[in-house]
Design a protein around this nucleic acid. Structure first.
Lengths: 149, 149
DNA sequence: ATGAAAATGAAACCCATTTTCATATTTGAA
DNA sequence: TTCAAATATGAAAATGGGTTTCATTTTCAT
């Protein structure tokens, strides 16, 4: 998979070291479309380097989230999920549809164009009104999936 | 504040008992504009009835959430927050602006009209496409507040 | 009033995440 | 290159929301 390009520069720009652990985590996120938990990522990381620790995975994820190359989500099942931020790499802007029964998560990107326009407008207004520097937004739809009816 | 009206009927309709614990929790939620955690609610509940247990508060909140009269949120600070659902009682439809540093939460209701239209359209499309029965949605904006810059 | 069903409280438990701390790795200055 | 300071890592222990268990109490239809 050629490029997980970008995150390296991002790290060094922030003055943080480019380590193999971090590269492994970045690659795992880069190579999936799924919504992985820290443990999911850890399990995959161990395949690459059996000596990696869960703690390190957590730390890499926290770092990436702080820098802004990863977005952390809570879908209500008690564990956080991580995805590459939508404005990085090959990740497309999208949102989530969550089944409140089985917790299945579906990505969708319908109406993103309209949504982005409205969000941009809203962001602008909110920034001004509340003096916030807005970094990103999330939209979650909760419902019951076909299978759980 | 006169009525926490509505929740009683809602409970009995679902075949659940109307207890004083539940009333206390419902009233606390009804009387605040804040975004209370289970413990916040517990602390206030104890003022009313010192013998109430934290467990009971959690159970009432879970029940209310399941029934749909309360909405549970995760703003990323490790504890869930609860609000009356926006289509009940005196609660207005609104969304949240969250400071990623100090975790302050601000309600906003700008552009809700446009937002609701877009959301309705999106919900319809998503329902059809993914065979989901959509119950509700959330929108969170994350950024840095004036004070934390 | 009364008993079966449902709700409660305290304590024990669970489990994702964080912290601690001793060790190892990286980097830049000499 | 070499070395020391800064940074990163892993294992184990700790933390802390939230949940489960179980014995007791409350509710409500009869």
């Amino acid at each position: 998979m050629m490029e997980s390009a970008g995150w390296q520069e991002q790290l060094s720009r922030v003055g943080v070291r480019l380590t193999t652990s971090r590269e492994i985590v970045a690659n795992i996120l880069h190579d999936t479309q799924r919504h992985l938990s820290a443990e999911d990522i850890f399990i995959r990381a161990v395949q690459v380097n059996p000596s990696i620790g869960l703690t390190t995975v957590y730390r890499a994820l926290e770092l990436f989230t702080d820098i802004g190359i990863v977005q952390k989500f809570d879908f209500g099942d008690g564990k956080a999920r991580y995805e590459l931020a939508s404005d990085h790499h090959n990740a497309e802007h999208h949102h989530h549809l969550i089944c409140i029964k089985c917790k299945k998560i579906i990505n969708y990107d319908d109406f993103v164009q309209e949504e982005l326009e409205l969000m941009k407008k809203t962001e602008k207004a909110l920034s001004k009104k509340h003096h916030f520097k807005i970094m990103h937004h999330i939209i979650h739809f909760y419902g019951i999936c076909e299978h759980c009816r």
